[in-house]
């Protein structure tokens, strides 16, 4: 077991390949209906957004409340490319990532001068402005939305049902997580943390604070763009400005907070739990928002580091006990 752990530590890509095969097998073993596949795709999309949000919020410490606007940019880039050019996911996905990355630059600029609640307000305004622009623009389908966005084809298979689309959203999510891990474990990730802890000290240590803030916003936006494009092509392929409101933004933030801000698995754990809890409480629609709000408040009060914090504590305790045992021998 120790040897296996060592190999994974040396070649983290192997871990993702194993995860890929496990996730490939899950539907045929555990899923009993198509809805579970649909829900899984939603979880994967939320994981991509939350992983990106964790970069800018959790690692770089920049308060952004407009991320849902970037998610909308990704969706509408894909939607419009399909509507006007008939492009498939394989074309819309990379372009949505690039376009959203450019929007990330616009979101990063206020962060050079603003902090905390001021930055939150600026990004909130940015996110809402994007949604309202889409809603009022006939080019984007305005309040009619964009419908019948095609599903991708590969090797003659059309991924047009929730069970098939699972095999599109899942690998994209894994690639996104791998990319997020690679960035956060690199010198860039450490620089992000330095900027988060104290920008002045970071600058004194030779870190270009502006550059890293910009990079965090761009990377984070690219994740949102990828998620948006995957969502736009999710069967039945319909996007509408109503799906990119402040409520959705709060949900994304809740995922990151619940999972654990700045914890490498934080956004992922949060996205999985929040999406499932939201689904399980669906029949309790009268109390759903109350339960949801209460969960966030209780998490912040009693679990400020989220579930990720608990996991960290467990491993640290275990390591400590192990070392203590070795020392006592």
């Amino acid at each position: 077991m120790e040897k296996f752990k060592e190999i994974i530590r040396q070649y983290p890509f192997l871990g993702f390949i194993i995860a890929f095969f496990i996730l490939m097998a899950i539907p045929s073993i555990f899923f009993t209906d198509l809805y579970q596949s649909h829900l899984s795709s939603l979880i994967f999309i939320n994981i991509i957004v939350a992983a990106g949000l964790n970069i800018v919020k959790g690692y770089c410490g920049q308060v952004t409340v407009g991320h849902v606007g970037l998610y909308a940019v990704g969706s509408y880039t894909a939607g419009c490319m399909f509507m006007y050019l008939g492009a498939s996911l394989w074309i819309t996905l990379p372009i949505a990532i690039l376009v959203t990355g450019l929007f990330g630059v616009a979101f990063a600029i206020p962060s050079f001068r603003l902090e905390g609640p001021y930055l939150a307000l600026a990004t909130l305004g940015g996110g809402e402005a994007i949604r309202l622009f889409i809603e009022n623009g006939e080019f984007f389908g305005s309040t009619y939305g964009i419908s019948s966005i095609s599903q991708p084809e590969l090797f003659g298979i059309t991924f047009d049902t929730p069970d098939k689309y699972y095999y599109i959203s899942m690998p994209i999510m894994l690639i996104a997580i791998y990319f997020s891990f690679s960035v956060l474990r690199s010198s860039i990730g450490r620089a992000f943390m330095a900027v988060r802890e104290d920008p002045i000290s970071a600058a004194a240590s030779g870190i270009n604070v502006k550059k890293h803030k910009m990079l965090a916003f761009i990377l984070s936006a690219m994740f949102a763009g990828a998620a948006g494009a995957v969502y736009a092509h999710l069967p039945p392929g319909y996007i509408h400005p109503n799906n990119y409101t402040v409520i959705e933004m709060v949900t994304f933030l809740a995922m990151v907070v619940f999972g654990g801000l700045g914890h490498i698995w934080g956004g992922i754990i949060g996205a999985v739990i929040i999406t499932i809890v939201y689904d399980l409480t669906r029949p309790l629609y009268e109390y759903q928002l109350f339960i949801f709000g209460l969960t966030i408040v209780l998490t912040i009060l009693f679990m400020p580091k989220g579930i990720g914090g608990f996991i960290d504590k467990y491993f640290i305790d275990r390591r400590f006990k192990k070392k203590q045992g070795v020392a006592s021998k």
Binding site: L34, Y35, H38, H240, N242, D279, P283
Partner: peptide, 23 residues
Amino acid sequence: LTLYNDECKSEKGVANATKLAYQ
């Protein structure tokens, strides 16, 4: 009877329809 709220949001409506149909 199974009642779900879609909040007038297409994403939730699609999820509700999928859940009602398949689950």
